[in-house]
């Protein structure tokens, strides 16, 4: 399956067949990559791990008419007079039809994706901010490829230009533990 097919099935198996915000799609695919050892070429960017391969896959789905984008305005930035927006990605009717065809041909792969999405949605915190911090913490840990202490991870994230506060970090660590991505080692 191509990257766009993974994204399509990820949206298909999410609740309401919708994923709120592009950042969440990026972060879910980042965690998915480590869950299944499928590589999407993530790199460190300003907002956390980012993959242009995923970005292109999403663009292709939009360009092919399988995914539609809706704007959700959730406030006004009074200082600058702009609307704060979020972009929600959902499947079109033909996107759903194509996803079903893909599933019938890739049952095993889809059950892994479904299982992954269920795990994500069962998390106590699976909003995009928590997933984003979890991805940043995991990326920092993977870069060093060794056990790291709280302060070391915070410093590593800082070195990528990612500002994370202690509370968000703790939530993110809980998420990574629930996904069995990290474990605590007593020193």
């Amino acid at each position: 399956m191509e990257t766009r097919h993974y994204i399509l099935l990820l949206i298909y198996s999410s609740s309401d067949q919708k994923i709120q915000s592009k950042t969440k799609i990026q972060k879910e695919l980042y965690l998915f990559e480590h869950f299944f050892k499928r590589k999407f070429s993530f790199k460190a960017y300003y907002y956390g791990p980012y993959s242009s391969v995923v970005e292109n896959g999403l663009d292709e789905l939009i360009g092919l008419g399988f995914v539609s984008v809706a704007t959700y305005v959730y406030g006004i930035d009074v200082n600058r007079g702009f609307e704060l927006k979020r972009y929600d990605y959902s499947l079109t009717e033909s996107g759903k039809k194509f996803a079903e065809e893909l599933i019938s041909e890739n049952k095993q792969e889809y059950s892994k994706i479904e299982n992954f999405v269920q795990k994500i949605e069962k998390l106590r915190n699976h909003d995009y901010l928590t997933l984003s911090v979890a991805a940043k913490a995991h990326f920092s840990l993977s870069e060093e490829n060794r056990p790291m202490k709280h302060d070391e991870i915070m410093n590593k994230m800082k070195s990528f230009g990612w500002q994370v506060n202690d509370e968000d970090y703790e939530n993110a660590v809980e998420v990574l533990k629930e996904l069995n991505f990290v474990e605590e080692i007593q020193s």
Binding site: E2, G63, G65, F66, S94, F98
Partner: peptide, 10 residues
């Protein structure tokens, strides 16, 4: 068909 649409794009 959807499958053909996907292939034409690629």
């Amino acid at each position: 068909k959807e499958k053909i649409r996907d292939k034409l794009g690629d």
